[in-house]
Amino acid sequence: MKQKMPGKHVFEYAVVRVVPRVEREEFINVGVVLYCKKLKFLQAIITVNEQRICCFTNQDEAQNIKANLRAFELICQGSAEGGPIAQLDEASRFRWLTATRSTVVQASKVHPGLSDNPQQTLLRLHEQLVL
């Protein structure tokens, strides 16, 4: 009989991407969003490299992208500034943020894992996949 490892919790994460020209399917990884149901943990780390984004788009579009990423963060945090979606529970917000869409800000497919510290795992994934 298999036993669970002490302190390990199932988590899900997705990479947050900027897709400046959706029809070209080119993207830049800009963040990671991680959800752990058991610990009621939902957090994202977004890092915008404006120079990279401006290689694909103009300055005005880059500002719009930054605003969209800020809205993503506000929804993830459950902030009142994030609107009605931000008022949903963690699971619903995570599912909404990672839903498949054809927009400039997208999430990768959702990936599972085990962690005893979701915050440290989020930082590690951000470093590996974004920085």
Results as ranks from 00 to 15, higher is better:
K109M: 10
R24Y: 11
T121D: 07
I75Q: 02
K4D: 13
R24F: 11
R17H: 08
P20W: 07
L122N: 03
F27H: 13
H111T: 14
I75H: 03
V10M: 10
F41G: 05
W96N: 11
Q119E: 14
K40I: 08
R93A: 07
R101N: 13
V15S: 01
V30D: 01
V10H: 11
E23M: 08
A14S: 14
S102Y: 13
N29T: 02
L125T: 00
I53V: 15
M5C: 08
S102F: 13
V48S: 03
L131W: 07
A14R: 06
C54D: 11
I46S: 06
N68I: 00
E81Q: 13
G31I: 02
E61R: 13
V22M: 09
V15K: 04
K2Q: 11
A44V: 09
N64K: 15
N117T: 07
Q77D: 14
E25C: 06
R52S: 12
N64A: 11
K109Q: 11
E73W: 00
F56V: 00
L97K: 03
Q77G: 02
K40L: 10
K38H: 10
Q106G: 03
C54A: 12
A71E: 14
I46R: 04
S79T: 00
Q87S: 13
F56M: 09
P112N: 10
Y35N: 08
T98Y: 05
I85K: 13
I75S: 02
I85M: 12
V48M: 07
E26K: 12
